[in-house]
């Protein structure tokens, strides 16, 4: 099923439901990849190709390292959060640190055709 935007609000709700129903589907089942490793990833089908979307707020595009080897995709990097030392903290929910995640996908990747962009 393809989502066309007719009414953006009901389309969003429909899309949220579609995301929920694909939650931890068995698409990766035979691979070694585990869930719960940062960053969280959503995988989509777009025609014949696949789109992987990862949530990495606060990480500059240049600080994300993506490498592909065979069916494996590795996404790694570092998220740094720095504040001036003179400020006092009211609330700290955002965290900094390293991330390194490898996914083995059940498709053949044509590494030359890989593109990346910010969503």
């Amino acid at each position: 099923m393809v989502y066309r935007i007719v009414d953006p609000f009901s389309a969003l709700r429909g899309f949220q439901q579609a995301l929920d129903s694909a939650r931890s589907s068995d698409w990766l089942a035979r691979g070694t990849a585990g869930t719960g490793v940062f960053p969280p990833i959503n995988v989509f089908e777009k025609g014949e190709d696949c789109v992987l979307v990862a949530e990495l707020p606060g990480v500059n595009k240049g600080d994300i390292d993506v490498s592909v080897k065979g069916k494996q995709i590795r996404i790694s990097g570092k998220r740094e959060i720095a504040y001036d030392e003179s400020v006092s903290v009211h609330r700290r929910e955002r965290t900094s640190g390293n991330f390194d995640r490898t996914l083995t996908v059940p498709i053949e990747i044509e590494s030359k055709r890989i593109t990346r962009r910010a969503y």
Partner: peptide, 20 residues
């Protein structure tokens, strides 16, 4: 969020939801 990015994408494996 800019939902138009997700046009023509069909979820096959997801770990998080998106929303405003």
């Amino acid at each position: 969020i800019d939902f138009s990015n997700y046009e023509d994408l069909r979820p096959i494996y997801t770990e998080y939801s998106i929303g405003n």
